[in-house]
Design a protein around this nucleic acid. Structure first.
Length: 208
DNA sequence: TAGTAGCT
DNA sequence: GCTA
């Protein structure tokens, strides 16, 4: 894993948003994908619903001691898979190392949300605010097809679009920790990493 | 208000 | 990219 210069696209747009294009080499992407697919075998992807009962277009699962879930009861972190009732699989060591390098922190993330975008799946503009410790950054790893990521200030100013390609890592920290962000669309067939196409996003957080 | 549709 |  190469040392990557932080590209803070925030200068004048959004301070605290870090972007590391190409953090993971193609071989590292393939290795990570294998690990994630094994976790998905243990904790199958499912389609959550919003508290209002609307289905998400992305399919989700989690790794770590806590996983982010949504259902009619609301958003929360919980230690077990909502369908199997089993604990989530562990966060792979490769991702713990990535967190340490990207954040420079001594602690470890306890939650890794796995989102699969396939068949025109999107994610509306939102803020990550279900974590107990909102001082800790959020780190995102992209695998597979390129996404059009939209990000803007927490208080509702202008948004900017950033392309996130396979192997890119980005982070929301400090003044960008509560940034509004979402996925407008995924560019089909822009990567050959994932059999059957699509994009997997891994989001590392401190939930507790 | 972690959705979706529809318009500029 | 914004509004409902």
């Amino acid at each position: 894993m190469a040392e990557a210069a932080v590209r803070d696209i925030g200068a004048g747009i959004l301070p605290g948003f870090g972007l590391w294009p190409g953090w993971l080499s193609p071989p590292d992407q393939a290795t990570l994908l294998e690990t994630v697919l094994a976790a998905i075998d243990e904790a199958p992807l499912y389609q959550p619903v919003t508290p209002g009962g609307r289905p998400f277009s992305v399919r989700m699962t989690n790794m770590g001691s806590l996983g982010w879930v949504s259902d009619r009861a609301g958003y929360r972190y919980q230690p077990t898979h909502p369908e199997t009732g089993r604990p989530w699989p562990a966060i792979p060591p490769m991702l713990l190392a990535l967190w340490a390098e990207a954040t420079g922190r001594e602690d470890q993330p306890d939650a890794c949300l796995v989102n699969l975008y396939r068949n025109s799946a999107k994610m509306g503009l939102h803020q990550d605010r279900d974590e107990a410790d909102m001082g800790a950054p959020v780190v995102s790893v992209s695998l597979g097809d390129t996404a059009m990521f939209r990000i803007g200030p927490a208080d509702g100013g202008r948004t900017a679009t950033v392309r996130l390609a396979s192997g890119d890592v980005c982070a929301l920290s400090g003044p960008a920790r509560l940034a509004r962000h979402g996925i407008d669309r995924v560019l089909e067939e822009s990567s050959r990493l994932i059999a059957g196409g699509g994009r997997i996003n891994l989001t590392l957080r401190k939930a507790a």
